[in-house]
C-alpha cells in the first residue's frame, strides 16, 4: 500500500480485500465473500467497485452489497458473469487479494421501515441487495422476487427474514410471469417498497407505487466510470432540477443508486 492509500479518516477508499469464499450458486451467478474493513461502515443498498487485475479492462465494476458481516469484517457480493471483468472475478480463489473501492452510494432508507410492512421487489441480479436491506429492516418484510427459471439463488437466505413470493419467466416455480404478476396473483399490499432489478420492472413499480400511493425507493444502475460522482457518466433524469448538477440529471453513483421513485424519470 502506498503512502497515499493510507490516508486516514476518509469515508470512501480504495483498498485491498481478501477473498474468503467464492462459489457458483446458480449458472453464471457467483457468491463472493471478501474480508475488508469497509464492512464496518457499509450500509444496505450501497455498492462496492471491484478493479479487474487485467490491465486491458481498466474500469472498476460496481456490484451491490448483498450482505454485511460487521463482526467478521466481511462483505458478500453476488453477481452475474456478464463480461470480461466479471469473468475474471469468477475465477478468484479463497485467500486471493483483490482491489476494491467502497463504500459507494447512499443505500436504502432503512429508518423508514420502522413499524411498517416493507415490500422488497426484485428481479434477477437485482435480488442480492435486498437481502441486507431485509436484515436491517425494523418491521415486517415480504419479498416478491422474479427469476428466469428454477435456479432460485438466495431463496433460503431471504426466507430467514420474510415471506417470499416467487415469479419465474418460464413458469417453473411460483407465478408464471414477472414480479407484477406475482403481486396481483397474491394480492400483496405494503406500506413501503424497496426495489432493484431490470429497468422495465422498475418502471412498472414506479407506476404501481404512484397509483397505490405507496412510498417506493428504487435502486438504479447505469454504466459507470469513476463511481464517486466526478465523471458524470451514470446519470438519471430527474423530475426537479438536481441539487448538485443544477440540471434535470442526478448522479446514480454518488446521489443514488437508491432514489425516491417520484424523483426520477425512468
Amino acid at each position: 500500500m502506498s503512502q497515499a492509500e493510507e490516508t486516514k479518516g476518509n469515508l470512501k477508499k480504495k483498498e485491498t480485500a481478501i477473498v474468503s469464499l467464492q462459489r457458483e450458486i446458480a449458472p453464471g451467478i457467483f457468491d463472493l465473500w471478501v474480508k475488508t474493513d469497509l464492512a464496518g461502515n457499509a450500509k444496505a443498498g450501497q455498492f462496492i467497485s471491484i478493479y479487474p487485475k487485467d490491465k486491458s479492462t481498466l474500469l472498476p465494476r460496481p456490484i451491490s452489497i448483498c450482505e454485511i458481516d460487521r463482526m467478521k469484517q466481511r462483505i458478500r457480493l453476488v453477481y452475474r458473469v456478464q463480461g470480461v471483468g466479471t469473468m475474471e472475478f469468477s475465477r478468484y480463489q479463497q485467500g486471493e487479494e483483490i482491489s476494491i473501492l467502497g463504500n459507494l452510494g447512499n443505500g436504502f432508507p432503512i429508518d423508514k421501515t420502522k413499524g411498517k410492512k416493507t415490500l422488497m421487489i426484485a428481479g434477477g441480479i437485482g435480488i442480492p441487495p435486498m437481502l441486507q436491506a431485509a436484515k436491517d429492516t425494523q418491521g415486517e418484510v415480504t419479498f416478491v422476487v422474479g427469476y428466469r427459471d428454477q435456479n432460485l439463488f438466495l431463496l433460503e437466505d431471504m426466507k430467514k427474514y420474510g415471506t417470499v413470493f416467487i415469479a419465474t419467466e418460464d413458469g417453473s416455480v411460483g407465478t408464471h410471469g414477472n414480479v407484477m404478476d406475482a403481486m396481483k396473483e397474491n394480492e400483496i399490499k405494503a406500506d413501503l417498497i424497496f426495489s432493484c432489478g431490470p429497468l422495465p420492472m422498475l418502471k412498472a413499480i414506479k407506476q404501481f407505487a404512484q397509483e397505490e400511493e405507496i412510498e417506493a425507493y428504487l435502486s438504479l444502475e447505469e454504466k459507470m466510470a469513476c463511481g464517486v460522482g466526478a465523471c458524470l457518466g451514470c446519470v438519471c433524469k430527474t423530475k426537479k432540477v438536481d441539487h448538485h448538477s443544477h440540471v434535470h440529471n442526478t448522479r446514480i453513483c454518488a446521489d443514488g443508486p437508491v432514489f425516491d421513485a417520484t424523483e426520477v424519470e425512468i
Binding site: E222, K223, G233, V235, H246, V247, N249
Partner: peptide, 10 residues
C-alpha cells in the same frame, strides 16, 4: 447549465 448527452455515456 448544460444537461449533457443521454446515457449510456461511458
Amino acid at each position: 447549465p448544460w444537461v449533457g448527452n443521454p446515457t449510456p455515456r461511458v
